[in-house]
Amino acid sequence: MIRFIFRRTGSLILLLVAVSFITFTLFQLGPADPASAACGQECTPERVAEARVALGMDHPFLIQYIDYMRGLVSPRMIGAPGAESICQWPCLGKSFQTNENVSDIIARSLPYTLSMAVGALVLWTVSGVGLGLLAALRKGSATDKFIVGAASVGVSLPIPVTGLFLLLVFVNQLHLLPFTTNEINSPFGPQGPWAWVLNYLLPWVALAVLFSAAYIRVTRTNMIETFSEDFIRTARAKGLAPRTVTFKHGVRAGITPVVTMLGMDIGLLLGGAVLTEQIFSVPGLGFTAVRAAISGDLPVTMAITMLAAFFVIVANVVVDLAYAAIDPRVRLQ
């Protein structure tokens, strides 16, 4: 176990370095001219030249990358010579638009993204696994067919359509829920947990409709497969209660593919549910990334992309560890 964690951590660090290098390359060498993006609307050739120096673009590419990565562990100076300012650890550069530290922008957006992710995750895991299990237990029945059909439709519902539809019906027409507000970003705020739930309920539902469909399909397939295996027959034969067979033996063995999906989806969501945040005006990481991408704010988009990839990679490692805890047949080596 310890050795496994040690080895995975090693490859994890390598993968993170590779991801950061690729992101940096894409965002620094990709744009036709980052310097003129940095100096904004009214730009003279002199100011572009200044911006080039301020961005460190007069240095070789590798030095630029190392400088950037050094900022993650220690403060560094940033800006044109003479007008430098300190960028505190962890430094991810400064926004072209507002000159704010990118790490501050991320720290501000993260609670919103977390609020979105937590609720949506609970909602779709419970509904997805629950319905998938129900369908598997009643394989071939009308219930099963209905659930499978609903999953096929659910997976084809694009978030912009469902999201706007939910807003139209529940907020604008029925007045059942408030428009999402920026003031609430955690259940522990002054308005209390109930206001938090009401505020994020629609985005959670919009995400859950799309995501739970995939969970229903995977849970159903794997549970049907598991229920037909020998060890389940043995458990039944030795007289265990059906409930014990289903949950203690069946679910533990059949749930691992769901855990894989869950890991990847948690990683994805932490990087920002781009569409959902945009539709419901939730100022999380995804929302911030869209704004930055449209206005050409390279340091912000780059940092969020890198962070999101980190989340995905780390989540995958956590999934591998979770396997061993859930499925008694898995041994880490």
């Binding site: 993968l15 590779a18 991801v19 690729i22 894409l26 965002f27 990709g30 744009p31 036709a32 001219d33 993006a37 990683g267 994805l268 990087g271 920002g272 781009v274 569409l275 995804g286 990334a289 869209v290 930055a292 991408a293 449209i294 050409g296 988009t301 780059m302 969020i304 992309t305 999101a308 990839a309 989340f311 995905v312 990679i313 995958n316």
Partner: peptide, 24 residues
């Protein structure tokens, strides 16, 4: 593995304007 590690929509979203600045 690297390609699969990137969150698809976010990457595509942030790179599209960059590519457009190249293609213009």
């Amino acid at each position: 593995d690297l390609f699969l590690a990137f969150p698809h929509l976010l990457l595509v979203l942030s790179l599209t304007p960059i590519l457009q600045s190249r293609l213009r």
